[in-house]
Computed example of a mutant assay.
Amino acid sequence: MAVVYRLRARLEVDEGKLERARRGLGRFLLATNVLDREGLPPQEVLRRYKDQARTVERGFRFLKDPLFFTESTFLKRPERVMALGMVMALALLVYALGEWALRRRLEGTGSSLPDQKGRPTAKPTLRWVFQLFMWVRLVELGGRWLVLNLAPHHETAVRLLGAGRYYLLE
């Protein structure tokens, strides 16, 4: 003896529930301690919040890179986790300030650096600038210090970052 089931159904969309669900999408709370709505309108609060993604969140995306070996970091005590977080946040702050200063100086002087494709850009990432220096070497030869593989774009970056005394041996 076989048991057979038969199901008959009809699908209906509840437009009221659908509209309420749509109204709830894309909303989140932003809080600020600036109470003057004219001094800091809600649109400006939202813009500043979204601008953080360009620095803070972008700065920490390297943690997802398999070459960073995040899974090999073992910290058992909460104090050490917090300390590592503080060091990383401080390093990111220094990185963001360096990138901001370099871009500001590039714009101010009308200079540029080559991007990954060799085209000039006034908005390089600091990571790329560091990679530009991968083959620059400081060597001592016969009691004299030499900087090898230093191209004009390296000199531009060095001068704008204020590191001329380390690379240009002036």
Rank of each mutant, 00 (worst) to 15 (best):
R27Y: 03
G39D: 07
G110S: 13
K50R: 15
R54N: 09
A83T: 08
R6V: 01
N149I: 07
M86V: 11
G108Q: 02
L75A: 06
M82A: 15
A53D: 10
D51A: 13
R105E: 09
L11I: 10
W100L: 06
F62Y: 07
T156E: 06
K117P: 05
V13Q: 03
L90V: 15
R77Q: 07
G39P: 12
G118Y: 04
V3Q: 06
M86S: 07
E107T: 08
E140G: 12
L150P: 07
S112K: 03
K76Y: 06
G162C: 11
W128A: 02
M134N: 13
P120Y: 00
L92F: 08
W100D: 00
G142L: 07
L102Y: 05
D51Y: 11
F28T: 01
E99P: 11
F60L: 06
A21V: 14
P152W: 02
V87R: 01
R105A: 12
Y5Q: 09
G164N: 03
V81C: 13
K17L: 07
K76P: 04
L160G: 09
L126R: 02
R37I: 04
R6Y: 08
R77A: 15
L75Y: 04
F74P: 11
K123P: 05
R144S: 12
L161M: 02
G39K: 15
L35Q: 11
L148D: 09
F130S: 03
E99V: 03
L35H: 14
Y95D: 03
L29A: 15
E155C: 00
E12Q: 12
V139T: 08
E15D: 01
K117E: 11
L106C: 02
V129M: 08
H153V: 13
E79D: 13
R119D: 10
V56M: 11
V87H: 09
G162L: 06
R20D: 14
K117G: 03
R103E: 06
E38W: 12
N33I: 09
L138K: 14
P124D: 06
A2M: 13
G59E: 02
L150F: 04
E155Y: 00
L141G: 08
P66I: 00
G108M: 12
V4E: 13
E155Q: 02
E57S: 11
L148K: 05
R37L: 05
L11Q: 10
L11P: 01
Q131N: 00
E79G: 06
R77S: 14
L169P: 15
Y5K: 04
R61A: 14
S112Q: 04
V147Q: 04
D14H: 09
L25D: 09
F69S: 10
G59C: 04
G39L: 15
T156H: 00
V81N: 06
A101K: 09
G39A: 15
G24K: 05
G39T: 03
P114L: 00
K117C: 08
K17T: 06
K17P: 00
L148P: 09
R137C: 14
L30T: 04
G162S: 08
W145R: 01
E155F: 00
Q116I: 06
